[in-house]
Design a protein around this nucleic acid. Structure first.
Length: 479
RNA sequence: GGGCCGCUAGCUCAUCAGGUAGAGCAGGAGACUUUUAAUCUCAAGGUGCUGGGUUCGAGUCCCAGGCGGCCUACCA
């Protein structure tokens, strides 16, 4: 419930326009944490933050101030605090700036003596329970600003995410990858098998699609001579929500000229190991209470071998369709008549095998039929050089030796277009401009997509993608 | 989309079998010079998610809807 604004003397108080803090809570502890109980430092600091706890006892008051770095106690004897009554009537959640000497109380709590203070902002709405915090996940997501100042784990998760992004950029830049920004609006949706969002541009009077992947633009840039290029791209997929899916999410895509998918595997395992080391202090971490060993090299396994081992079936691309369909039927997997062996194998794999993999493991070589942008395997016709990195039972990354041949790409697009006409609304459409780019020549290239939200989940030990997305997509509160 | 669960004061939670709602914290008033979830006293605080129904009587039972959580499905 909102409380009325403070109006001393009937006049609304206006907060200052700025406040010079000279130290953070963490810096106070670092510099003076070791002084004796009862000691005074003679050093004055100015700190600022929110009042989180308050203990008034007559002519002496204590408060706990929280800033971005942590907490520090405010020590407030009536005889030194200007407007002592005003200070004591501060509410939990109010923002204050405080100046005074750093000292330690008799009981050993490092504190700032309140010799001057100023109200920086009022919390006119009540603070969540100071002990239990926020339990309702709905409020945590809808009012993330409340969650963030009340829930330490939430602050930690988002700090970790920020560091992860920053470390990723630095690591890639050290390897001469150039960060770029490609369009969010695509005239032709492409780069992934996914349903797009669409919108309309008034001046051009045309339908535009929000990107489902930046892939085709990034490969155009490789054609243009950016030999190592990456984008940390917000992408949009018009699909369901779950603990692992948000309609808008962040993907790292990277293209590396002259490399193949084997090179990309090494890049992925070393990048992830680097992030784990920096953020968790080791390459063996725990996720959801279970050990996860991210130390390179990660095992490599062929898709078809994993499927065979897990399902006990001796099947492949040359298995008769009727037999594959029967295997699907045995497992209650719905199939469609137009599906070829590759799609049926993929379905069988996803329903029987993928969830059983804890990883990390590189699952290699997928059917060509379900990988319209990947290059055919150099030794296995009908298969492509593609891998998915499965970590903690989830797909973390998808990569391939890129398909570079424009004629082959055109044929694949046309196959996709036929699928689309047959009713598959996730199938790709022919992207003539992209084909034209390929005709200018795309060198051998390794490409990669990494779900950064899922990587953040892994490193933050979060069970839901909503724990690593500040403002996850929700239904509006009122219909 | 399906299943299960939840929704009570600003927050965290109670309310045994249907009898007209209760606590802690926050907010208000007061006491208190070393507290740290401070403590103590007092007062206040609720169209019990919404709408129907059953009943003498519904927060409680039934139906529909809303929002959320988990699982499942979908989803590279």
């Amino acid at each position: 419930m909102a409380r009325p604004p403070a109006q001393p003397g009937g006049q609304a108080m206006s907060p200052p326009y700025r406040f010079d803090a000279t130290a953070t809570a963490a810096e106070c502890h670092e510099r003076h944490g070791r002084i004796e109980p009862g000691a005074e430092t003679g050093q004055e600091v100015s700190v600022a933050g929110r009042i989180m706890l308050r203990r008034v006892q007559g002519r002496l008051a204590f408060a706990t101030l929280q800033d971005a770095t942590g907490r520090i106690q405010l020590f407030a004897p009536a005889k030194v605090v200007p407007d002592y009554d005003g200070f004591c009537s501060l509410s939990l959640g109010d923002w204050v700036g405080v100046s005074g000497e750093v000292m330690k109380t008799r009981t050993g709590e490092l504190s700032v003596k309140v010799q001057r203070w100023v109200l920086l902002a009022e919390a006119r709405r009540s603070f969540p329970d100071k002990w239990h915090g926020l339990a309702d996940p709905d409020i945590r997501f809808r009012q993330r600003y409340v969650d963030l100042w009340v829930t330490e784990e939430a602050r930690q998760a988002f700090r970790l995410r920020s560091e992860m992004m920053s470390l990723t950029r630095r690591w890639l830049e050290d390897r001469k990858f150039v960060e770029v920004e490609t369009p969010v609006f695509h005239p032709v949706p492409g780069g992934a098998l996914a349903r797009p969002f669409s919108t309309h541009h008034n001046a051009l009077d045309m339908e535009l699609f929000l990107r489902v992947a930046p892939e085709l633009y990034l490969k155009r840039l490789v054609v243009g001579g950016l030999e190592r290029v990456y984008e940390i791209a917000r992408v949009f997929r018009n699909e369901g929500l779950s603990t692992r899916h948000n309609p808008e999410f962040t993907m790292l895509e990277l293209y590396w000229a002259y490399a193949d998918y084997g090179d990309v595997m090494e890049l992925v395992e070393h990048l992830v190991a680097h992030l784990a080391t920096e953020l968790r202090g080791a390459t063996v971490i725990s996720y959801g209470g279970r050990e996860l060993d991210l130390t390179p090299p990660w095992p490599r396994a062929r898709f078809i071998d994993l499927l065979a081992a897990q399902s006990g079936l001796d099947i492949g691309l040359d298995t008769p369709l009727a037999e594959l369909r029967a295997h699907c039927a045995d497992r209650d997997i719905p199939v469609e008549d137009r599906w070829g062996p590759g799609k049926l194998l993929l379905e069988l794999y996803e329903k029987t095998t993928e969830a059983e993999i804890w990883g990390p493991v590189f699952v290699c070589d997928y059917p060509k039929e379900v990988s319209p942008l990947a290059r055919e395997h150099r030794h296995h016709p009908g298969w492509v050089e593609r891998f998915e990195a499965i970590v903690a039972g989830r797909e973390l990354a998808n990569a391939f030796s890129e398909l570079t041949d424009p004629d082959e790409q055109r044929a694949r697009f046309e196959g996709q277009a036929a699928e689309r006409d047959a009713g598959d609304d996730e199938a790709m459409v022919v992207d003539g401009d992209y084909l034209q780019a390929l005709e200018f020549g795309l060198p051998p290239t390794g490409g990669l997509g990494v779900g950064m939200d899922r990587l953040a989940m892994l490193l933050a030990d979060a069970s839901s993608i909503r724990d690593v997305i500040l403002f996850p997509t929700l239904r509006p509160e009122s219909p």
